[in-house]
Design a protein around this nucleic acid. Structure first.
Lengths: 259, 259
DNA sequence: TATAGTTGTCTAGATCAATAGACATTTTGG
DNA sequence: CCAAAATGTCTATTGATCTAGACAACTATA
């Protein structure tokens, strides 16, 4: 099984163009197809024409009925990604996923840069909660000590991109809520409380289907995927200052890891 | 909408315990529930007992019929994650996702460390292909110049974790296939061709539903999610030496980004 | 102005997903 | 030993998904 395939490979590669989807999976065919077309759009596969291939062509490629492809395209139209024009074809309206950089100095609003004109972060709510085991460990505080919890959702040009739950040690950052509300930025709220700089020390990523809560917060077409990042930021002495759990709308974002 | 919710928050948090799932989404309820239980298991939510809650309890929490929960548990049993024992309950067989570190010096086999006893990478095939636009740009070679393509699938303790397609400039690494087949490692194959060290310069991540190809390569229960990482490695002069596209089985892996 | 190619709409039937209820089987604990 | 609690199995019904085919409406082009 090692590397003596060579010539036979060419054939195998052509097969791969058949864009197969699987049945009886718990994920409807129209949704799998919508996912794949979305990916093709964002990969620029259709840039030559600016159009999605005709429904009959897609149906043949995916090996499904034309109506199934129509369901997929309807979902993408609902997202505003494509627009169908009777008699002409289906036009691509929007192409790129927003690329979000994760680095040692990750700051939410900065990285998005020129990709979106307007970034809005809305504070959904806050609370003062005792540290649970996992979070206490991540923040290096004793379990049960008080934390400030902030819940936010962020949008780019009106489209929700991510939603976060963040925790801060209440003793060190007692005015977190007020400062964040006033300044609209975690970085500035930290600065207002005497912390000038901080760095990302760890990020863990998983991907899964969105639950109903995330669907509504991120205005996702249901059944969508979220990428969940658990991250810890620390001050320059290595003392953790923030634990947060951010869920990104997977079909609107790609994460770029910078090293 | 800014931070004057406070007390009302506590109620909202309790509501969140209701583990809601959405209907008519193109993703079957049993699959959404399977995803959520899998996440709960890997988060350690059931560590106290080592058991998944009873079917009736889960059905109540998710607001669905017991049979729907049974479908979800059947899928998890199929994955080998849980085992049902009549009269007793449903036992957790395996807990953790494998954590895969992505850093400036990412090396596949090293990072997995003690998490898996045995790592096996199988060469699926190879080919010599002209560089397409995107890949040529990433590798900083002229479009159409020859690349060596390697396709592999990697498993930990017999469970497929990821599948990769990688490209190397054919002029610089003409013996890539032979050396890789002989040594079983990209790092060693590079060394055998005079490249002693290399670093990760970029990684881009997206998440989506797996296609049939990935389902069969990764032996995924259909409808599963993959995380796709496009990465570029370069030598210490910054000259790109490898472009690769790795798809991770999202329900078996978490990615840890180290900065 | 035909004609081919495209999306839009409708109907009918087959299969999958989910609910509902009843009862069997097995284990645990009083 | 008995009762409670858990999983296993079966039947029946409803709604969502997918297929199949036919035709209408619209667009571009020869």
């Amino acid at each position: 099984m090692a590397g003596k395939i060579g010539a036979a490979e060419i054939g195998a590669k052509k097969m791969a163009l058949k864009k197969i989807v699987e049945r009886q999976t718990g994920v409807a065919l129209w949704r799998q197809i919508a996912d794949r077309i979305r990916l093709s759009i964002s990969n620029g596969d259709y840039d030559a024409t600016g159009m999605v291939p005709p429904e009959m062509t897609l149906a043949r490629e995916f090996g499904v009925n034309r109506h199934t492809v129509r369901s997929a395209l309807a979902a993408l139209a609902e997202e505003g990604l494509v627009r169908a024009l009777q008699g002409r074809g289906t036009m691509i309206e929007r192409k790129d996923r927003v690329s979000y950089p994760i680095s040692r100095r990750t700051r939410f609003s900065q990285g998005l840069g020129r990709q979106v004109k307007e970034i809005a972060t809305r504070l959904l709510g806050h609370a003062e909660v005792p540290a649970s085991g996992e979070i206490a460990a991540a923040l290096a505080v004793s379990p049960g000590s008080l934390l400030i919890e902030l819940r936010t959702v962020s949008s780019g040009d009106g489209r929700p991109l991510s939603t976060s739950v963040s925790y801060y040690p209440a003793d060190r950052f007692p005015r977190m809520v007020e400062e964040y509300s006033r300044l609209g930025s975690v970085t500035k709220a930290f600065a207002a409380q005497g912390l000038d700089d901080y760095v990302r020390v760890s990020t863990e990523l998983v991907a899964r289907h969105a639950d109903a809560d995330e669907l509504s917060l991120l205005k996702l077409s249901p059944g969508a995927i979220v990428m969940e990042a658990q991250s810890v930021n620390a001050d320059l002495d290595g003392k953790p200052v923030e634990f947060s759990r951010t869920r990104f709308a997977a079909d609107r974002m790609k994460l770029r890891i910078e090293t």
